[in-house]
C-alpha cells in the first residue's frame, strides 16, 4: 500500500486530506460520526479577534454543482476558541491542527496569531486574507500584493509556527499575490477561497442571499481552483494546499498533480459528512492506479515530462 504521508513546511501529516475551514467548525459535529484521527489535519473555522455574529439570513443559496454562502465569519472569537474549543479538540483529534485566522487590521492578525503561540496542537497558521482592511476603506487584503505581503510580515514577526496564507481567487493574477506572500516570508499557501457570486430569486426579484453576494464553492469551482494551483506552483517554491471543489480521491490526485502538497476538502463535507473519510479510504487505490509508492510523488507531477 502506498505511503500517504505528506510534509507541509516541516509538519508531517499522515495523509494529505484536510477538511477546509468553515465546513468543519471546530470538529465537534463530525466527531459524532467518525474518528477524526484518520485525517491528515483539519482547518478550524475562521477565527477573528472579537466574536462575530455573521450576516443576516438567508446566508445560503444553491447553484448548479455547488452553493453560495455568506456566513460572514461567524465565530466566538480567538479567546473563546482557545478557552473552550482547543481543550475539546485535544479530546477528539490528536494530530496537527491548522488554525485559520482572520483579521481586519495588521495588528489584529498579529495579535490573533500571537495568542496561538502557546497552543501546542496548532501546528500551522492559515491566514485568511479575504477580509476587508478597516484601515484602508475596506479593501480586501488578499486583493493587493502589498497588503498581502504586509499581513504575511506582521504574522511572521510574532510566530514560529509555519504560516500559510490563504488566497482569494477574486483577483486578476493570483500568482502575483502568491509571489508577494512568498517574498514576505510565507512558509506556504492555501488556495483557493470561495469565488464571489450571486443568485436572484425570480419570485421576489431580489438576491437570494441577504448579503446580496456570497462565496461559490463545490464541484463547480474545481477546474478554477486546479488552474490557479497550477499557476501558483509555477510561480513559487513554497508548498501549496490545494482547495476548491474537491469531492473525491481522484480530485485530490488532480490537485496534487497540479502542484498541491496537500488538499483541503470543503463543501463536500456539508453534503456528505463522511466525504473526507471516504476520500482517504480511496487514496491507496488511486495511488496504485497512478503507479506511485508515495503519494507526495504526485505533487506537481503534471508539470513535468
Amino acid at each position: 500500500m502506498a505511503n500517504l504521508s505528506v510534509n507541509l513546511a516541516g509538519v508531517e501529516l499522515k495523509n494529505p486530506i484536510i477538511p477546509a475551514s468553515g465546513t468543519f467548525g471546530y470538529g465537534r459535529e463530525y466527531a459524532e460520526l467518525y474518528d477524526l484521527n484518520i485525517l491528515g489535519s483539519f482547518s478550524w473555522k475562521g477565527t477573528t479577534g472579537a466574536a462575530r455574529l455573521g450576516n443576516p439570513q438567508p446566508r445560503i443559496a444553491e447553484t448548479a454543482g455547488g452553493m453560495l454562502n455568506a456566513v460572514g465569519l461567524q465565530n466566538p472569537g480567538i479567546d473563546a476558541v482557545i478557552a473552550r474549543e482547543v481543550p475539546h479538540i485535544a479530546e477528539i483529534f490528536q494530530g496537527p491542527v491548522i488554525a485559520n485566522v482572520g483579521g481586519f487590521s495588521l495588528d489584529e492578525y498579529a495579535e490573533n496569531c500571537a495568542k496561538l503561540n502557546d497552543v501546542d496542537q496548532v501546528a500551522i497558521l492559515e491566514v485568511n486574507i479575504s477580509c476587508p482592511n478597516v484601515h484602508a476603506g475596506g479593501k480586501n487584503f488578499g486583493c493587493d500584493p502589498h497588503a498581502a505581503a504586509e499581513v504575511t510580515r506582521a504574522v511572521k514577526a510574532v510566530t514560529n509556527k509555519p504560516v500559510f496564507m490563504k488566497l482569494t481567487p477574486n483577483v486578476t493574477d493570483i500568482a502575483e499575490i502568491a509571489r508577494a506572500c512568498e517574498d514576505a516570508g510565507a512558509d506556504g499557501l492555501c488556495l483557493i477561497n470561495t469565488l464571489l457570486g450571486m443568485r436572484i430569486d425570480l419570485n421576489t426579484k431580489r438576491p437570494v442571499i441577504a448579503n446580496r453576494t456570497g462565496g461559490l464553492s463545490g464541484p463547480a469551482v474545481f477546474p478554477v481552483a486546479l488552474r490557479m494551483v497550477w499557476d501558483v506552483y509555477e510561480a513559487v517554491k513554497i508548498p501549496i494546499i490545494g482547495c476548491g471543489g474537491v469531492s473525491s480521491a481522484e480530485d485530490a490526485a488532480e490537485m496534487m498533480l497540479a502542484g498541491a502538497a496537500a488538499v483541503e476538502v470543503g463543501a463536500a463535507n456539508l453534503v456528505d459528512p463522511m466525504a473526507c473519510k471516504t476520500i482517504i479510504e480511496h487514496l491507496p487505490a488511486v495511488c496504485q492506479r497512478l503507479g506511485v509508492d508515495h503519494i507526495s510523488e504526485l505533487t506537481g507531477g503534471a508539470h513535468h515530462g
Partner: peptide
C-alpha cells in the same frame, strides 16, 4: 425553518439571533 447548508451544525448557514446569542436552526 431556514435555508441550510449542511443540516447538522457545521456550516453556520442557518444561524439566527436569540436572546442567548446566535443559534443554529439545524442543530
Amino acid at each position: 425553518e431556514a435555508r441550510m447548508g449542511c443540516g447538522f451544525g457545521a456550516c453556520m448557514g442557518c444561524s439566527i439571533p436569540t436572546r442567548d446569542g446566535y443559534k443554529r436552526v439545524c442543530k
